[in-house]
Design a protein around this nucleic acid. Structure first.
Length: 298
DNA sequence: TACCAGGAGAGCG
DNA sequence: CGCTCTCATGGT
């Protein structure tokens, strides 16, 4: 299947710390979407997709990749400040995915004080141990589904600790059990006001403001959700309040008022810009040295 | 060796 | 409320 994908940076999108199961193998991206193994290749303004079993309707992938959104219209809502515009120039084509709520929630419960590589390892172990084998191409190594919350609710804390979850193990386990027992209904959050949907997620153990906003943004598409982590904190300090002591509360207020109705998109561009050091743009006017001094390069 | 990683929760005053 | 401490694990 071929999709028209104008102004789409597949690599930046799949490797930007939103989703954690994509792997770069032999010049293509392999992952699992909606319970199906898929392999993606980008060529110019097209994305080629192949699955392990015949697919008649590809809407699930189109939706996941958010192929139909108008990125340019989102950019028009951004404030015209230099840091954000530089971020856009450094990785134009970066998109927000539309992930499965449970997988996204569980993934970010696993994410706290972990580097992205470590998060990927934890999730790979969870899938291997608790997921189910999926159809894959002949000769391909086994690939497992992301385990649903009913399956993880039946796990043990030590079983999860075997997957390197550490102190996050009881958080994930108890969250899975609360979902199984119907104390929170993830399917009911679609279309709720942002604050109400966030309040539901915050009831789950191991879910604070940052993780709740990640799920609201990456799974439900709440465009105003603005997860504030250490990278974004650095980005805001470094790019918007250099040489000033600003309290986290003020930075959070700034993030909620400055960036407009698609603030979550702005957040993702700043995050990517901060993590990559803005390297991909040739004529960057960005304070590269300031970014590196803030710890944004590794 | 010491420090840090896309945090959250509990315990303080 | 705002601050500090702890939590588990792997990498530099």
């Amino acid at each position: 299947m071929d999709f028209l994908a104008d102004n789409y940076d597949l690599a930046a999108t799949l490797a930007s710390g939103q989703a954690f199961r994509w792997r770069w193998l032999d010049g293509a991206w392999e992952g699992v979407v909606a319970g199906r193994w898929v392999r993606l290749r980008q060529a110019e303004d097209r994305i080629h997709a192949e699955a392990a079993v015949p697919v008649e309707d590809w809407d699930w992938l189109r939706h996941y990749l958010q192929l139909d959104i108008d990125l340019g219209r989102i950019f028009q809502t951004f404030p015209p400040d230099e840091p954000l515009q530089s971020s856009i120039r450094s990785c134009a084509g970066l998109r927000l995915l539309r992930q499965d709520p449970w997988e996204c929630l569980a993934s970010f419960i696993c994410s706290s004080t972990k580097q992205i590589v470590q998060i990927q390892q934890i999730i790979a172990l969870l899938c291997l141990r608790f997921g189910q084998p999926l159809p894959v191409p002949r000769g391909h190594e086994p690939v497992h589904s992301f385990p649903d919350f009913r399956r993880l609710a039946e796990a043990t804390e030590s079983g999860l600790r075997d997957c390197k979850l550490g102190f996050r193990a009881p958080y994930l386990l108890d969250s899975a059990r609360q979902l199984r027992d119907g104390q929170v209904d993830l399917a009911a959050l679609h279309g709720l006001p942002l604050e109400e949907a966030r309040a539901q997620l915050l009831r789950l153990p191991g879910v604070g403001l940052k993780i709740a906003d990640c799920v609201l943004l990456f799974a439900y598409g709440f465009q105003r959700a603005f997860p504030v982590d250490v990278w974004i904190m650095r980005a805001l300090r470094c790019l918007y309040f250099p040489k000033r002591r600003v309290k986290p509360a003020r930075l959070r207020h700034f993030s909620q008022t400055h960036f407009g109705p698609h603030a979550g998109y702005a957040q993702q561009y700043l995050f990517h810009y901060m993590r990559t050091g803005g390297k991909t743009v040739g004529n960057a006017t960005a304070p590269q040295t300031a970014i590196q001094a803030a710890g944004g390069s590794s």
